[in-house]
Each structure stands twice: as C-alpha cells, then as structure tokens.
Design a binder for these strands. Structure first.
Length: 876
RNA sequence: GGGCGGUUAGCUCAGCUGGCUAGAGCGCCUCGUUUACACCGAGGAGGCCGGGGGUUCGAGCCCCUCACCGCCCACCA
C-alpha cells in the first residue's frame, strides 16, 4: 500500500508505467502460449503521418480490445506497423526537394528512392512513438512495414501468382490521371466534388457545308480531340444525319455522326461530341464504333502538337478559354450557361483528375469480389454495425478493374521485364538478361497493404508456415473508420479469400469520424482540429481515451470538445480520491472473498447488487463494441453509486466502534473497488493500474492489472436490497430537498417523526439515515398527526414530520408546496384518464394496469398530505 | 441521379423487441471550506421527443408523408 497524492497527476505516472509494462514484457505475445488466440493488426498509418485525433480513437479502441482480451486470459497480440504510402510519401520528399531548389528528375531515381528511405528512417516512426503516449499496448517486437523486405517478397509473390492466373493484366485503357502527381490513380483515389462550371453549346458544320449540328460540353478543350458525334438511334431529329461527316473547325479533318444507345436524347441537343481519349463514356463508344482515338494531352495535361499550332502547349484550363473564344470568333458558339457538375480530384493533392489513355497494369477484380461477397453473405466476416454490410456488398457488386500501376518511384517496382522484341516476362526473380528492362512503374500502395493481415505474420508465399499464422490468422477483429472500407477492407477480404480461402478477420468494427462539438468535421484549415498529444499533455492519456470512447458507438461519428476531455480527467480524479479514501480506511484489507452473507449490511448487499448488474451490462457492451455504454455504465456506477452513496453510507461503520462491522465494510469496499478497476482497466489503463497496485500487495511484488483476471459474474444480484435501499435514498433525498428549499444550513440538525410502511427497515438504518440526511434523531409513529407548526415531507414509502419552529421561511415553503400540489394533481388527472378508459383496463397487461392503480393510490395520498401541509402552513 | 443516417433540454447525445412520471455529460441558477475529492458536495430551473396523418388501450419508439441537415456512392455531355 502506498499513500496517494491529493490529486491525480497523469503526467507523473504515465511514462513510468508504460516503461514498466514494456520492461515486464506484457505487450509481447508468443504464438505458442496458452489461451484462446486473439489478434489484431493495426491499420498501418502512413509513415508520413503524425497522430491525429482519428488515430487516437481508432487505436484507442484496438487497445481496449486487446487489453480486455489479455485479462480474459486469451493469447492476445496487437501487431503494429506502418504503410510506405507511395504517393503521399513521394509528395513529402518532393516538396523537400522543391524547397531545396531541385527535383526528383534532377536527382535521379536511385538517389531519390535512397533519400526517401533515409527520410523514413528519420521521421517514419513518429506516429508509432506517439501511439505509445496513448498507452497503446502493441507488441513492438513485431513491428512491420509494408515496404520492408519480408512484405516486399510477399508483394512480388502475389503479383506473379495473380499474373499467372490471368487476374493481373497489362492494358491500354482510359484511366484517371493526376497531372500534378503525374501518375495513374485507381477509381477510389478520385474524389468527386460538385463544381460550378460552364456548359458550352456550339455547332459543328457539316463537311459538305450544308448546315450544322449542335453539341454541348463542360470541357471545351476536349473538342480538339473529337472524332465523332453520337446521337440516339431512335432520335428522329437525327435519323437522317447518321453517317454524315462534320468538319473540325480548327483542324484539317472530318468525322462522322454515329448512333449509340448511350446518348440521352433529353439532354441538351441530344447530340454528343465524342472524345475517346479523354472521357470514359466516349472511349466506350469509340470501341463500339471503331472510332479514331486522338490523345491531345501530355502527362502534365498540356495540349500537344496534335491539336495544331494555335492551341499546342496550352494548359488544359487555358485551352478551355481559348477554345471558347475561338469558337465564338468562328461564329460557332451557340451559348454558355452555368452548370454544376461533379469533377474528380486527386485524393492526395486535390488536382483535377484527367481521364487519360495509357498503358497500365490492372487487377481483374470480378472473381475476387465474388468470393469476398460470398464470405460476407455467409457471415464468415461480420460488420459492426451490421448496417455496413449491405453497403459493402453493393459496392463489391459494382467494382471495376483495379488500376494498380503508378508512375512514381516510391513503392514496390512491378516485377515485369520487357525484352528487346517487346516480350514481357513477369517473374519472382529479377530478369537479368541483355537488353531486358524492368517496368518503370510501382504498385499502388493498397496492393501491399491488402496483404497486411498475413504478411505481418510472416507470410511470403504459399510455403510460409509460421507459428504466428497458425495461431493468429485469421485475425479476430479489424478496427477502422467506415471511410476506408472500400480502399482497404474490401481488398484484404478479396485477396485473403483468393489466396488462402480464408477471411482476413472475423469482425470488421467500423467506428465513426471524430468531429467537433457541433458535429463539424475536424480539419486543420477550419481551425477546429484537436491535437490528441495536446490532450494527453493536459489531461492525460486515460482522459483522452475515455472522452473519445464515451461518445463512440459503432458506425456513428464521434463529437469531441476539449471540455469533455477535461470532464474525463475529473472522472479519473474522482476515482483517485475514492481510492485515496479507501486506502486510508482499508487498513491493509486486500480484495479477497466477500464476508459471509450474515455479515453484510443493506448497503453492502445494495452495492454488490449494483456492481453485478453494472458488470453484466458493461461486459455485454464490451462484447458489442458499444463503447459509450461501457463508459456510461462504469462512470455512473463509480460516481453516482459507489462514491455518492456507498462510500457515504459505509462511513458509519468505518468510523464506528464495532470492529467486526468495520472489517466487513472494508472487505466489501475492497472487492467493489477491485472489480471496478478491472472493468475500467481496458479503457483507462494508467490510473486503474496505479490505484490497483496501491490497493493490492501482490506476493510477486510486480503484478500488473494488465494481466489480472477479468471479473466473472457474481451471485450477488439482490432485488430486495435494491428496493430497500431505494427507500432510504428517497427519504434522504427528500429531506435534503426540504433542507435546501427552506434554506436550512447543513450544520443544522433536526429530528423527524416518521410514519412508514417500512418502519422496521428505517429503524434499523437510522444511524445511516441520520448521517446522510443530517438528522438529529428519528422517531416513529403509526400515523402523522397534522399539527400547526409542522411540515410533512413525503417520500416513496411514507412521510415524516418536521417541527418548523425556528427552521423555515413560511412564505417560500408555501409557494413550493402549492406548485408541487398542482403538479401532482395534473398527473393524477392523467392517470385517472387512463384508468377510466375501458379498453386500457381490458387490454393492457394486468401488471401495467396494476402499476397505474398503485400510482393513483400514491398520488391521492400525496395530494392529501400536500393539502394538509398547505393548510397547516397557512394556519401559522 | 442512387443509397444510408439524422432531427429528443442552451450544446453534444442516451433512450434495446411500443408501457416515460423522457435521461446523461457540459453549461446555467441557489446553497455549502461535513475529517476521499472545490478536478468537490447538496439542491434546482430547463423538453407540444422536426411538421402533418395513421396503427394501437397506449407512440420518442411502429407505418405513411412532408420539411430540413449530414454522409457515402455515381463515366450524362
């Protein structure tokens, strides 16, 4: 046992405790150890990142899960690591180069990659270091990196396997291109935002000079690559025109009008200009009609020479204006109107994405998606909340092939080699032959992170047979925001089922996004973001975790304000003081067996019953990922029941002169506190550990709450005790109310005369009642006889009479009573109405009707007493 | 264009399969230096549970409808 300081100071204990846990090896797990396996792999944060509030929530939840699993005796591991984050990391290093007045091309590929590795050695560990501040109990000996040797071997193995199975192919197709990053992007790396643009209507003149046809576009510059005009085959306005040629106004060429179902006759003129190289729909039409494809832009989205001298070299946005002016000049512009439409932006740098035709590598996702969908439908992986399931399945159903090649340098190089005669070889080992060169591109970051649940356990190929895989794969649960279900969760499911015929995780727990206290998204630019490290500095890791989890429910966004974290710190401090009190009074009593039933007082039986009911509720909430319920249950029990009532009630015995009674009280208090600390430990690991160690002298001397047993159900539910205690609470509360409303100082003690059906109970508990309500004595009578100069306090179980002489302010008391009377009469009216309703009495369950009848009785009683009191006061 | 979620006290939210005399935290008001805690204690004020309709003995909870807000998905120029 140790003395506790007056207030809890998180900073004073957290780092030492964390070091202590590490030194004791408590985070490290052994696949061969006993216990039902439990495993989580961290969603690897980008090496470029630093801990933001969303990570704090995500990892806080994971830590809660793994800490509880350990206490439950499971063989639990939490594997940490980071993602090399291809484009994001490359951008960071490129910015540094730009600041230094150079760029990656000047540096050269090899030196650039070298430099990026160096950057990651120096700065890449930031976020994992910060996670330690949060208390994350990761098995740091197992830290992995998506781009380290083992993970890279796995990536190559998977690429080659899928290639051999025909699921990876190279093709010249229209992809999303970021002209700033100068790389291809997958569909989901494109963010669509509604943008106000212009819809330009203009005419193409027929080649024979006889008339024209009107088309519309939001991207005027693309007309420089038009190779057809499409109309709907059933559109009578144009039936005769199909097959006719139009002349390009700025280029010396003509092209035809074609008919295609894709065209919506209702939109615009019903005729669509077709730019196969720069629009996915147009590309599809071009394929159907065997149209020419003219690529008009370079990789920075500048127009190339093919568009003709007038526009060559212009940026696409300059060109948009230039083409518009040129059309106007040529008398072809029909009109310009404001037009809102969705424009795709690069997820990483927010540049407008350009559809572009190029040679890329793709994964054919259909077969993989089907397996994944089936596994989810079969419940082999379940989503929490369940409502995400449907969304996820629908998304899987509509997947397009996945473009996996990126024209950047930081990432896994594609294991394909090209021979001098255009041969391609995809290989597990480097091709080192004269004249052969490796593909310049690297793989999408998600290609490696999709393998994470098994590569972190040492999988590098079908022959891998590590104990980690045997024990911990599939993982137990994956914790992420719902925002990356598509990016990552889906791909892990697909690839894992495809390669192993096994789901990567049994549960996907989606939490929400952290928002500010008004529900606004936290963002640096908006100035409402909160730095979790600041919170930890100011309020402690426990408070930060508790505040986040307290408003977290599956799939629901989490609002957070700094004051709420402050509130959580106050909770930690409250616990601290509860324990401080206990330490003073326990006199060495250790948590152990409960005293015999006959040694338990009413408040003991009450608190043990409440404890058990809280334990059951909280335990179930842990199982259901209902974090706010977990937190609320623990908070409410600790503060409103243990501290406010039990501790106060138990003082009578602790300060009393009956040693046996005091010993029993101490034994119960020790057990209750011990269970509470255990149940709270996963959420607030630091303060609970300090207090638990202070309250427990373990024989080994170095025991930790981290590996203490998780509380089991106790046979202590006691409805009778709860009912009886509620009577006492009600009496105490009513007396306090009377005192407060009549401005009677706390020091002033007064006696009451009680008439109650619970006379024996109240009589037995008189010392406690006197202590809690500040009474000088309790006298008992069969019935209150109303007398002038007295007031009657009604409580749920009877009433008591107070001599008013010298105690109260008559006017104020009268006003209060009148108001209360009106309220009671109003409610009586409601109850009478219900009971007067024949069908209610007939059809409602008997117990419900009975409850209303009883309520009527109580109200009648209360009203008559109130009336008597009013009369009595008025007589004064 | 499609889908999902929300609308309950000043703010942020709980309210499970309909029985609520609708709760919590923060904020607000009054009182209080009672020997665990002023990072506290006691008490209090404050809600036509978004609008309208329906089902039911009974609706914050179920159904329909409208309004507003938020999010996700989407290759109509």
């Amino acid at each position: 046992m140790t003395e506790l300081s007056k207030a809890y100071d998180p900073a004073a204990v957290e780092s030492d405790l964390y070091a202590d846990w590490i030194a004791a090896g408590l985070f490290h797990a052994d696949p061969d150890a006993d216990g039902e396996p439990f495993s989580i792999v961290i969603p690897p944060p980008n090496v470029t990142g630093s801990l933001h509030i969303g990570h704090a929530l995500d990892n806080g939840i994971q830590d809660v899960l793994v800490r509880r699993a350990r206490m439950q005796g499971r063989n639990a591991v939490w594997i940490p690591g980071t993602d090399h984050a291809g484009i994001a990391t490359q951008n960071v290093v490129e910015k540094q180069l730009a600041a230094a007045g150079t760029d990656r091309h000047e540096l050269g590929r090899e030196a650039f990659v070298e430099r990026t590795w160096q950057w990651r050695e120096e700065s890449g560990g930031t976020i994992l270091r910060q996670l330690r501040r949060l208390g994350a109990s990761c098995d740091w000996e197992r830290e992995a990196f998506t781009f380290d040797e083992s993970r890279s071997n796995a990536v190559r193995e998977v690429f080659v396997t899928l290639y051999e199975q025909g699921l990876i192919y190279r093709g010249n197709r229209l992809i999303n291109w970021c002209p700033r990053c100068r790389t291809a992007l997958s569909d989901i790396e494109v963010e669509h935002t509604d943008t106000q643009g212009e819809l330009l209507r203009f005419r193409y003149e027929f080649a024979d000079g006889d008339g024209s046809i009107e088309v519309a576009t939001t991207r005027a510059e693309t007309m420089l690559g038009d190779t057809a005009i499409a109309v709907h085959p059933d559109d009578e306005r144009y039936t005769d025109l199909v097959g006719r040629e139009v002349r390009h106004p700025f280029q010396d060429r003509t092209f035809a009008i074609v008919a295609d179902d894709y065209v919506d006759p209702e939109f615009g003129s019903g005729a669509v200009k077709i730019t196969p190289a720069h629009d996915p729909n147009d590309y599809a039409i071009a394929q159907r009609h065997d149209l020419a494809v003219i690529d008009i832009m370079d990789d920075e989205a500048r127009l190339t020479d093919v568009v003709g001298e007038r526009f060559a070299g212009l940026d696409r946005f300059e060109a948009r204006r230039a083409v518009r002016d040129a059309l106007d000049e040529a008398g072809l512009l029909v009109g310009v109107e404001a037009h809102e439409h969705a424009v795709g932006h690069c997820e990483r740098c927010k540049t407008v994405v350009e559809p572009r035709l190029s040679d890329q590598w793709f994964v054919s996702v259909r077969p993989l998606a089907e397996k994944a969908a089936q596994a989810v439908r079969d419940g082999r992986t379940v989503f929490v909340p369940e409502s995400r399931t449907k969304l996820f399945l629908e998304w899987l159903d509509n997947l397009h092939d996945w473009c996996i090649s990126r024209q950047i340098w930081w990432g896994h190089r594609i294991p394909a080699w090209y021979g001098p005669d255009g041969e391609i070889e995809v290989s597990r080992t480097d091709v080192d032959r004269e004249g052969w060169v490796q593909d310049e591109d690297v793989l999408d970051t998600w290609f490696s992170s999709q393998l994470w649940p098994f590569t972190t356990m040492g999988w590098e190929g079908p022959d891998s047979d590590t104990p980690e895989l045997a024990t911990w794969f599939p993982t137990s649960v994956l914790v992420t925001g719902y925002d990356i279900n598509t990016f990552w969760v889906s791909r892990m499911l697909m690839i894992s089922l495809w390669l192993h015929d096994e789901v990567p995780f049994r549960v996907v727990h989606n939490h929400g996004l952290v928002r500010d206290e008004f529900g606004k998204k936290m963002s640096k630019s908006f100035g409402n973001s909160i730095d979790p490290l600041d919170l930890i500095d100011k309020y402690g890791a426990d408070a930060t975790r508790f505040a986040l989890l307290r408003s977290a429910a599956p799939g629901v966004d989490v609002p957070l304000a700094e004051e709420w974290v402050e509130g959580a710190k106050r909770f930690a401090n409250k616990l601290w003081n509860v324990a401080a009190f206990a330490l003073q009074r326990l006199e060495g009593t250790e948590p152990g067996d409960l005293p015999d039933a006959d040694a338990l007082t009413l408040e003991d039986r009450w608190v043990l019953s409440r404890l058990e009911s809280m334990r059951a509720e909280v335990d179930a909430a842990y199982d259901g990922y209902e974090w706010s319920v977990v937190c609320r249950g623990l908070y409410h029990f600790a503060w409103d029941e243990l501290a406010d009532w039990y501790l106060e009630a138990v003082k009578v015995r602790l300060y009393g002169d009956d040693p046996e009674a005091a010993a029993a009280a101490r034994a119960v208090l020790a057990v209750v506190l011990d269970d509470l600390l255990r149940l709270l430990a996963p959420v607030m690991p630091f303060v609970t550990e300090v207090l638990w160690r202070a309250l427990t002298t373990s024989p080994g001397g170095r025991a930790s709450l981290m590996v203490a047993d998780w509380p089991q159900a106790r046979d202590t539910l006691d409805a009778g005790a709860e009912r009886d205690f509620a009577v006492l609470q009600d009496l105490v509360t009513e007396v306090r109310k009377f005192r407060s409303q009549n401005d009677i100082a706390p020091k002033v003690r007064f006696g009451i005369t009680v008439a109650s059906t619970h006379r024996d109970l109240l009589q037995a508990q008189a010392p406690m009642l006197e202590a809690l309500a500040g009474l000088s004595e309790l006298a008992f009578v069969d019935a209150i006889e109303d007398r002038p100069g007295t007031s009657t306090i009604v409580f749920g179980g009877g009433s008591c009479q107070v001599e008013l002489a010298g105690l109260i302010d008559v006017e104020a008391e009268l006003a209060r009573l009148t108001k209360e009377l009106a309220k009671a009469e109003g409610e009586l009216q409601r109850v009478e109405g219900k009971l007067a309703n024949g069908s209610f009495v007939e059809r409602a369950p008997a117990e419900v009707v009975e409850r209303e009848r009883a309520r009527r009785g109580e109200l009648l009683e209360q009203i008559s007493q109130l009336r008597e009191q009013v009369d009595a006061l008025e007589a004064l």
